[in-house]
Write a protein that binds this DNA or RNA. Structure first.
Ligand code: MG
Length: 492
DNA sequence: CTATGTAAACAAC
DNA sequence: GTTGTTTACATAG
């Protein structure tokens, strides 16, 4: 990491500057702090930022109330916390009980690396190109990175809450003061923290991201009545539930089946009769980088069942990031509303060969492939109308199968970079935005037409061999030309 | 747009 | 049939 540019925030910005809906939940918390604190800074000129404010990325806003009310009653699961040194979890806690609910900001004790951050590559966020009032971190475009760092270094995890219910419930304003005192001045706070630590931030006690009104009205029953324990797992997303399952497991490892069992026991999802939830679990296990399938241990004789485990990162962090984050970039839109769904699917782009390649080593033994999911050969398809082409901006190019990318990586001994590689500096090497078209496999030679306008692109990242691999074998239909999301669908 | 859920194709076992 | 990957689509917020 070449984190270099240090920063300091001393400016203020409009309360509603941030649009939470556009920020990944992992990063919203901090935004919230920013904006919340800003609101109370009418009399202050110094912006406070708490990088380590109690933050439970696990807890979605809808569940916050439930969590809170459960804290007292629930016998906190005795969670071992391998990579965690609890002593570093200085109980900087706010007082959710105080009517005026003052929140004291306490700088993190371990966020040493927060004092700086990198100036990464691209990254264009909604806020990136933001207004002039935005806090100038340095390069506006790095806001996300910065926030990520904050999040990453947060030491307030759900577990912390679990273990400190008493403090949560009984803490008074001075608790904070105490810890602050005990802790002493943080070693070079990342961001200038004002000393007026007693200053109350006008924030409701409901929780991180939910305004009182919303939380109260939307979840009335979560107040103080029924919460056996079941509802704690109730609404959590799969990724978080899986995290819990693994967290509770010895060694933080479980087989898929065991995870299923855990779900059946501890969640409502798992009580479904259908298999959908299992599919979802597998989906999450696969797609979330927080979960890894440790190759089966020498399980005597049996079929080696993979052991799913939490990555060290997830353990350290105390949570797993949104599975969404590991999905391919948004492809939505451009998918014509009236376009037949089936027609829109990109032949051969799903799983299968793609998945296979990405996954293991084995070479796909190209066996005959049934061509199901072949859309109503029916009459539609009057689409051969030559497409107008780049309508300028939102041109939607169907995302190429990840396989191609990973295959490419593999062929370069790049150690299978996952999906996020699309955001990596290497992106350029396989940026399909340069691909303009492709000949039809049966006819042509799978020739890629690249936009040679880019001088940086001194080579065609994908050799035709690969293309043949996933196009040529897709059966009679041909990739792009017949692709459901092909040009014809880009109409309107 | 983000986060999540869900279905399903598909490859390897 | 199960496990694991991955894409497609949907929907809530
Ligand atoms: Mg994974």
């Amino acid at each position: 990491m070449e984190r270099t540019d240090s920063f300091k925030m001393t400016s203020s910005f409009p309360p509603d500057y941030f649009n939470l809906a556009q920020i990944p939940t992992d990063q919203r918390e901090h935004e919230y702090h920013l904006s919340a604190q800003t609101r109370s800074l009418d009399d202050e000129s110094l912006l406070q930022i708490s990088a380590s404010q109690p933050y439970d990325p696990w807890q979605s806003s809808e569940n916050w109330a439930a969590l809170r009310s459960n804290l007292a009653s629930e016998s906190m699961t005795p969670l071992q916390h391998p990579g965690h040194n609890n002593s570093t979890l200085e109980p900087h806690e706010q007082s959710p009980s105080s009517s005026s609910s003052s929140r004291v900001i306490v700088p993190g004790s371990n966020n040493t690396h927060l004092s700086s951050f990198s100036t990464p590559h691209h990254h264009s966020t909604p806020m990136a190109q933001s207004n002039l009032q935005a806090p100038r971190l340095h390069h506006g475009e790095d806001l996300l990175e910065w926030q990520s760092d904050l999040v990453t270094s947060s030491f307030y995890t759900r577990d912390f809450f679990y273990r400190q219910p008493a403090q949560l419930e009984t803490s008074s304003g001075n608790l904070l003061g105490n810890s602050l005192a005990l802790q002493g001045p943080p070693p070079s706070p990342p961001i200038s923290i004002s000393s007026q630590q007693s200053s109350s931030i006008s924030v409701n006690s409901m929780g991180p991201t939910v305004p009182n009104t919303v939380a109260d009205s939307s979840s009335p029953r979560t107040s103080l009545e029924d919460h056996s324990e079941g509802d704690l797992n109730a609404d959590l997303p799969y990724s978080k539930l899986i995290f819990r399952a693994l967290k509770e497991a010895e060694g933080n490892k479980l087989t898929l089946q065991q995870i299923y069992e855990w779900f059946t026991k501890n969640t409502n999802k798992g009580k479904d009769n259908t298999k959908g939830w299992q599919n979802s679990i597998r989906h999450n296990l696969s797609m979330n980088k927080g979960f890894t399938a440790d190759k089966a241990e020498g399980s005597t004789g049996k079929k080696p069942q993979n052991l799913w485990a939490l990555t060290q990162d997830a353990l350290d962090r105390g949570y797993v990031e949104s599975t969404t984050r590991y999905r391919k970039a948004n492809y939505r839109k451009a998918v014509g509303s009236n376009t037949p769904v089936l027609k829109r699917q990109w032949l051969g782009s799903k799983g299968g060969k793609a998945a296979n390649h990405a996954a293991k080593v084995g070479h796909p033994s190209q066996r005959a492939r049934r061509e199901r999911h072949h859309y109503s050969p029916g009459q539609h398809q009057p689409q051969q109308a030559p497409q107008p082409q780049p309508s300028g901006e939102e041109q939607y190019l169907p995302t190429p199968p990840l396989a191609s990318i990973q295959h490419y990586h593999l062929s370069h001994a790049l150690n299978g970079l996952p999906m996020e590689t699309r955001d990596s500096p290497l992106q350029h090497e396989y940026d399909y935005s340069h691909v303009i078209g492709c000949t039809s496999p049966p006819l042509g030679d799978n020739v890629l037409f690249c936009d040679a306008a880019d001088p940086e692109l001194d080579y065609v990242p994908l050799d035709m061999g690969h293309l043949c691999c996933w196009y040529g074998l897709q059966g009679p239909s041909n990739g792009l030309t017949a692709g459901p999301d092909g040009p014809s669908d880009l109409q309107h």
